[in-house]
């Protein structure tokens, strides 16, 4: 485990815990896209199937359980919690996320490493994670301003993906371990999606103005 990988996992953990804490504490999910949260819950559910069959390490298993638990908790809060659900912006969060799920499913059926159910679902989860943030970014554009916790959430997710790319580069040069090109491309696409958000996030932070995304 290299520092990039550990830092990446920690920022990813922070992003979901920050979001869960915000929703639990202020009993509000204003600015949060339920669609993105549902997509992430699906990403984890289809990627962590091996949690019961392949034991890699305590760390690996514990982190998978935390990610599964937190992502499904966030979906539960927004859908079911009597107070939180009132602050969910149904009219604005209209991204048809099925338009993301189906192409990822088809792509996984076309491009994969092994044609086994577990591998297909794993590949599907890699593709889906790359685009899962889109409903959230669209919602942020629509609601124009970003309350800082949602901004932090997207920022931490972007940081986690960037660190994972550094981790893959590091592993390529040290362990002769190469990441399958499928994972490379999906990971790069995902990170690039954050690039413009990063630009506006830093601009607003530098000029100390409220973060505004251009329409």
């Amino acid at each position: 485990m290299n520092i990039f990988r550990l830092a990446g996992d920690m920022t990813h953990l922070a992003s979901v815990l920050v979001l869960l804490l915000k929703i639990h504490t202020i009993k509000s999910c204003a600015g949060v896209s339920l669609k993105t949260q549902e997509l992430y819950a699906l990403v984890f559910a289809t990627r962590y199937l091996d949690i019961f069959t392949d034991f890699i390490s305590v760390y690996n298993t514990v982190m998978k359980l935390i990610f599964l638990g937190s992502s499904f908790s966030i979906v539960w809060y927004i859908r079911r919690h009597k107070i939180v659900r009132r602050s969910y912006d149904k009219e604005q969060d209209t991204f048809r996320h099925y338009f993301l799920v189906l192409p990822c499913l088809l792509l996984a059926l076309l491009i994969h490493e092994k044609f086994t159910v577990k591998e297909l679902l794993w590949t599907f989860s890699i593709y889906l994670e790359a685009v899962a943030i889109l409903p959230q970014l669209v919602l942020l554009q629509r609601t124009r301003n970003i309350d800082n916790l949602t901004g932090q959430y997207v920022f931490l997710l972007g940081a986690y993906r960037s660190l994972y790319i550094l981790n893959w580069i590091y592993r390529y040069f040290t362990e002769r371990h190469f990441v399958h090109w499928i994972t490379w491309i999906a990971g790069l696409v995902q990170t690039l999606l954050y690039a413009d958000f990063f630009y506006y996030y830093f601009e607003s932070w530098k000029n100390n103005v409220k973060l505004q995304l251009p329409a």
Binding site: D9, M63, E113, Y164, F178, I182, T183
Partner: peptide, 10 residues
């Protein structure tokens, strides 16, 4: 040969 895909990652 090196393992191909990062299955030990999250």
């Amino acid at each position: 040969n090196p393992k191909s895909v990062a299955k030990d990652e999250l």
